[in-house]
Design a protein around this nucleic acid. Structure first.
Lengths: 175, 175
DNA sequence: TACATTTGTAAGTGATTACTCACTTTTTTA
DNA sequence: TAAAAAAGTGAGTAATCACTTACAAATGTA
C-alpha cells in the first residue's frame, strides 16, 4: 500500500512533467491525488519542498543508472553503455527525466543535469582510449547525449534502434 | 522610436526567457515595460496572444537564418554552415532562442522547433553527399544540433571554437 | 486502556492572477 | 479644424494562488 505521502509525490511528478512547475498548482495536485491540499504542506512544508523531494527521489534512482558503467571493464564497453542510456530509459521513469530536462531551462537553481555527473566518467574513458583531447571529446559526447535524451523524451524519434546503431558505429562499437 | 507595442513585446520576451511563461505575470511585464497592464490586452487580446506574437516575430527572424544555407553551392559548405549556426547565434537574439527551446518542454503546442524546418534541408545535403542513409544521418545531425544549441543557450560551453572545430572535423570539413 | 504523536481534513487567509471597463489622451483622417 | 479612431490609463473584477489554522481521526506506545 502506497502511503499518501508517496501518492502526492508521484502525482506531483506527473503533473510537473506534463505542465511545468509554475503552471501546476497545489490544489490541482491535491485534487488529482485525492487528498486535502493541507496534507501537501504538512508533508513538504511548501511547493518548492515538494519539488526538491521529487528531485531527490529521482536523483538516487538516477545515480544507479550512471554507476552501471562500472559493470564493464573495457572502455569501449563503458562508452557503449553510456551512449545507449538515453534509449534505455524505463517508461515509468520518463516523467522524472522529462521534468529534470525541462527544469534546467527555468532558472539556474535546478541544474542537476545528468551531464554534470557523467562528465568525469566520459573523460576517463577517452583518456584510456588515448584520444588526443579527452576533455573535448567528452564535451562533444555529452552534447550528443543531451540531444539524444531530448529526442527520446519528447518522442521525436522514429527508428530508435537504427539511430542507436548509427551512433555506435561512429565510435566503432558494434553489437 | 520604438512603439509601446514593441516595447511590451521585447520586455515580455526577456521575462519569458528568463523565468518561463507561466511564472511571468502580465503585471510584471507591464511594470518592467513601464506601461499600464491594460495596454497589453488592448494590443494582444490575452497572455497567450502575447506569446504567439513573440513566437511569430522570432519565427520570421529565424527563417532568414535557415535560408542562409542557400548562399552556398557545395553541400559540404552547406553542412558546415548549418553545423555552425548554434555557435553564431547573435547575443541580442539569445532570449528568443532560449524561450523557443524552453517552450517545447511545456505542452506540445509550442513545438515550432528549428529542427523541424531544418530536417528536409539536411536530408537533401546528405543525399547529395551520397550517404547510404541520408534520413538517418540527418536525424543524427539534428539531435547533435539540439545538443549544441542547448549547450550554447545555457552557457555550458567553455572552448566554443575548439568544440566547433572538432565537430567540423568529424564531417571532414575544415576552415 | 490511556495518552502522545502523527496523519489527515475543511475552511479559511491575504496576495496575486488574467482580464475588463469606463474614461482620457493622442493620432489619423476627411 | 472637427470628428473618428487608436492608444493609453487606473481602478476595478472574480478566480485562483500558496499557505495557515483549528480541529478530528488514526496510529503508536506505555
Amino acid at each position: 500500500m502506497t502511503s499518501k505521502k508517496d501518492l502526492i509525490l508521484e502525482t506531483a511528478l506527473k503533473l510537473f512533467a506534463q505542465n511545468g512547475f509554475s503552471a501546476t498548482s497545489t490544489s490541482k495536485i491535491a485534487k488529482a491525488a485525492g487528498v486535502s491540499e493541507g496534507l501537501i504542506f504538512r508533508h513538504f512544508e511548501n511547493k518548492e519542498g515538494l519539488l526538491h523531494a521529487i528531485l531527490e527521489m529521482g536523483r538516487i534512482k538516477g545515480m544507479a543508472l550512471f554507476e552501471g558503467v562500472t559493470n564493464f571493464q573495457k572502455p569501449e564497453d563503458q562508452l557503449k553503455y553510456i551512449l545507449q542510456i538515453p534509449f534505455n530509459i524505463r517508461k515509468d521513469e520518463l516523467p522524472f527525466w522529462k521534468l529534470l530536462y525541462a527544469l534546467k531551462w527555468q532558472s539556474d537553481n535546478y541544474d542537476e543535469e545528468p551531464s554534470n555527473q557523467l562528465k568525469p566518467i566520459v573523460i576517463a574513458i577517452f583518456s584510456q582510449l588515448e584520444y588526443p583531447k579527452p576533455e573535448l571529446e567528452a564535451e562533444f559526447v555529452l552534447m550528443l547525449f543531451d540531444g539524444m535524451a531530448t529526442a527520446v523524451l519528447l518522442k521525436k524519434i522514429k527508428k530508435s534502434k537504427a539511430i542507436e546503431d548509427l551512433i555506435l558505429n561512429k565510435y566503432n562499437i558494434h553489437d
